[in-house]
Simulated assay, not measured.
Amino acid sequence: MTPPAPIALFAYNRPGHTRRTIEALQKNLLAAESRMFIFCDGAKTEADNAAVEQVKQIAHATSGFLSVKVIERKQNLGLANSIISGVTQLVKEYGTAIVFEDDLISSPHTLQYFNDALERYASEEKVMHISAYMLPIALDNLTETFFFRAAFSWGWATWARAWDNFEPDVDKLMQQFDKEKTSQFSIEHTMNFWKQMLDFKAGRNNSWAIRWYASVFLKQGLTLNPLHSLVHNIGHDGSGTHSNIENTYQVQIAQKRVKYFPNVIKEDKKAYEAIKHFLKNRKGSLFNRGLQFLKQLKGKYLRKNG
């Protein structure tokens, strides 16, 4: 068996989240055999200095892995540039990389899942991305893992052969889309993936993830996904640079090893429909929760001023 893939953890100014992410990874069954690389971004403003220094201290105190290397950025690269450069560095040296941000709680079996999948599909050119997160979709008639088109970025892994296809230039990506591809890319307009592309072009976001998914999609690549999520995102508490307070995507983390991996390399139609159904309902539920929130605000105002 090949050695476990290196882990890249990208952190910035959330010491509490970073500590919890590391503690969960330390409990993984392959932690002691895995190399850990912690990329600490530099402070964007003076106000961030104290929190950034706390994160660096936590990183340097980390143990429980085969090795731990802390990479401190002298300037603020931003999440996108930090991830792009860090992943490029690791896949160039090791051929693979497992990628975590500083707000992901993993199952004790998450690293095992990544490494099993990286080995299983190492020579399958069509398989370009392995996700650890899965939406809380309906579970009926779905296999333990399945192939899908979208590349979810909450805990993922890839190979150098796939990452070589990453295209950072959004204009080069967008010019390859027509009306039909845009629909398929956005899961028949149930997800705002195309809007994310437009927002990046307009400077309203700095997402590496949407450009990576577009790169995978345009190569007709597939992503491997678990039916039961192997990570939970704790960053939707308003603390992150790109996160809001949100509970739509909360999941229960799987607590057993993934044993099934598909032999047929094609998108799972049942899984596609289940994800599309969830996304359609999510739109409705978010709208209804928004209305409820407005009603609550109105009630508070009337009680206070009525």
Rank of each mutant, 00 (worst) to 15 (best):
F166W: 02
M128V: 07
L90F: 03
Q252C: 13
Y94I: 03
F146T: 01
L79T: 12
L139T: 15
R20N: 13
H277R: 11
E119C: 07
L9A: 02
D103M: 04
D199G: 05
W156H: 09
K259E: 15
T158Q: 08
S215I: 00
P4V: 10
S186L: 03
S186H: 05
K92I: 04
V68K: 11
V258F: 06
G155N: 04
E93Y: 12
E23L: 09
G64M: 12
S107A: 09
H109N: 09
F65Q: 00
K69D: 11
N247W: 02
G78P: 01
I84D: 07
K270S: 13
N141R: 06
Q57N: 13
L142K: 03
F177R: 00
L77V: 08
A47R: 15
I187E: 02
F261V: 04
A271V: 00
K74L: 14
D178M: 07
L297T: 10
A97R: 05
G238E: 06
R73G: 07
N244V: 15
K295R: 15
N115D: 10
A214V: 05
S63I: 11
H228R: 12
T110R: 02
A138D: 15
S215W: 00
D171A: 02
S207H: 01
P15N: 06
L79C: 13
K92F: 12
Q112G: 01
S207W: 04
E188A: 14
R204Q: 10
S243K: 12
K259D: 13
H129M: 07
S186G: 05
Q89H: 13
A117V: 07
Q296G: 04
N281M: 08
F152S: 13
E101Y: 05
E273S: 13
V231N: 00
